[in-house]
Amino acid sequence: MGELIRCTDVCKDYVRGAERVGVLRNVDLSVQDGTFTALMGPSGSGKTTLLNLIGGLDSPTSGEIEVDGLRLDSVNARALSAWRARSVGFVFQFYNLLPVLNAQRNVELPLLLTGLSRSERRKNAGLALEIVGLADRGKHKPGELSGGQQQRVAIARALVSDPCLLVCDEPTGDLDRSTADEILELLQTLHRELGKTIVMVTHDPRAADRAQHTLHMDKGRLVSNIEGLGTEVA
C-alpha cells in the first residue's frame, strides 16, 4: 500500500474585497492508497477547501500537492481537467447531476472524455449503475428519483471511469438517517471490495465512524488524526 496523496506545507488564501483570508495554513498530510479517510471539523475550518485541492478543483496559494504521482500545484488547467477525468471521482452533497439527462446518460457523461466506443460507454455505465443497485433506473431522470437514488447515481458517475480516488463532500448531508446509512454502506463496500481510496468531508460523527481514520481540522489546520492507520498528520 503506497502513498496516494501527499500535501506539503499547503496554504490557501482567499481575497475578499481588500482582505486576504487564510483558509488553510501549512497543512501537511499523507494518505495511503486504498484507505477510507474522514475529514471533520467545524464550518469554516477549511476541510472542503482541502478536499477541493486534493481533487484538483482548486490550486494552493503555496505548498505542494501530489496525488497519484502528479504535482497538482504545478500543472495547467487543461492538464488538471484531464487528470480529474482520469483519476478522481467526485460525490457532492447536492449530487450535481444534469437534470436533462437520465441516470444512464449522467453516468456515461465522464466517459465522453475517454476513447471508449459508444457500446463500451453504455456497458460501463450500466455496470456502474448495477454496482450502486440502480440497474433498473437507468432511464429515469434525476427529478424522478429520490435523494438517496440520486446520490447513488452520483456515486456511479464517480466510479464509472475507475478512478484511483473518490472525494466526497458531505455525501449524506442532504439525506435522512436511513438513506444516509445506505450511502455510507455503499461507500464502505466500494472501499472494501474495489479498493477505492476515499476521502470524505463530513459533519456527522456517525458518518466518520464508517471511515478507517478521521482527521480533524480547525481554523485551517489539521489538528488530530484518530486511529491514524494509513494517514499521517505532520
Binding site: G55, L57, A77, R78, S81, A82, W83, R84, A85, R86, F90, F92, F94, N96, L97, L98, P99, L109, P110, L113, R157
Partner: peptide
C-alpha cells in the same frame, strides 16, 4: 451554472 461546474469537475475542459 452548477451543472456547468459539475461538467468541469468531471474533467470537461473550459
Amino acid at each position: 451554472v452548477p451543472e456547468l461546474a459539475a461538467m468541469k469537475t468531471l474533467g470537461f475542459p473550459d
